[in-house]
Amino acid sequence: MTDLLAATAELVDIASPSLAEGPFADLVEGWLRDVPWLTVDRHGDNVVARTELGRDQRLVLAGHLDTVPANDNEVARIEGDTLWGLGSADMKGGLAVFLELARTVDAPTCDVTYVFYAAEEIAAEHSGLLQLFRERPDLVAADAAILGEPTDGWIEAGCQGTARVRLSLTGERAHTARPWKGRNAIHRLGPILEAIAGYEAREPTIDGCTYREAIQAVFVEGGVAGNVVPDEAVLTVNLRIAPDRTLDEAVDAFRSMVAPWTEDGDGFEVVDRSEPAPPSLTHPLLAPLVEAGTPVRAKLGWTDVARFAEHGIPAINLGPGDSSVAHMRDEHVTRDSIERVHAALHGLLTAS
Rank of each mutant, 00 (worst) to 15 (best):
R307A: 15
P179F: 06
D152E: 15
T170D: 11
T2G: 07
G223N: 14
A277Y: 05
M257D: 02
E269D: 14
R240L: 00
G171F: 07
I338R: 05
S16A: 14
E21G: 06
A123C: 01
D56N: 05
H346Q: 13
P295V: 08
S274L: 10
T246L: 08
P276L: 10
G153A: 12
E194D: 15
E121M: 04
A326W: 09
M91K: 04
M328T: 15
E203C: 14
A277S: 09
H175Q: 07
H187E: 15
I186W: 00
E213K: 01
D81F: 08
G87E: 12
L349W: 06
R50W: 02
D72C: 00
P260T: 06
T294G: 03
A157I: 07
I241V: 15
A157N: 10
P243I: 03
Y211R: 04
P191F: 11
A344D: 15
E221L: 14
L130Y: 06
R245H: 15
Y117W: 06
G128L: 08
T151D: 11
N184W: 01
R255M: 05
A119K: 00
M1C: 04
V112D: 08
E263Q: 15
D207M: 05
S16Q: 01
G44R: 08
M328I: 00
A118H: 10
G319T: 07
D106Q: 14
V229N: 05
C110Y: 13
R103W: 04
P204H: 11
G293K: 10
V105R: 00
A177F: 10
L349Y: 01
E10D: 15
H283V: 01
P137E: 10
S324C: 08
F254R: 02
A144E: 11
V218A: 03
N71D: 12
L286C: 03
D322C: 03
A157W: 07
T350W: 10
K299F: 12
E291V: 04
L289P: 00
G85W: 09
I316R: 02
G190R: 13
P284W: 04
N317A: 03
A233F: 06
S18Y: 04
E149Q: 14
M91G: 03
L53K: 11
A306T: 14
V290F: 09
T67S: 01
L53E: 02
H43T: 05
L86Y: 06
H64M: 02
H126S: 03
F98G: 00
H327R: 01
L32I: 01
L139T: 09
L348Q: 06
S323M: 12
P23F: 00
G93N: 12
C159E: 12
N317H: 09
D248P: 03
A185R: 01
E200P: 00
R183Q: 11
Q216Y: 05
L193S: 01
I78Y: 11
I196S: 06
W261F: 12
R134D: 13
L99A: 09
E156R: 15
R340G: 01
D264K: 13
C159I: 12
E194S: 13
A259V: 07
E10Y: 07
A197K: 10
E21L: 11
T170P: 00
D264T: 13
D252V: 10
I196W: 04
K299H: 13
E331K: 03
I155P: 09
G171R: 06
Q160Y: 06
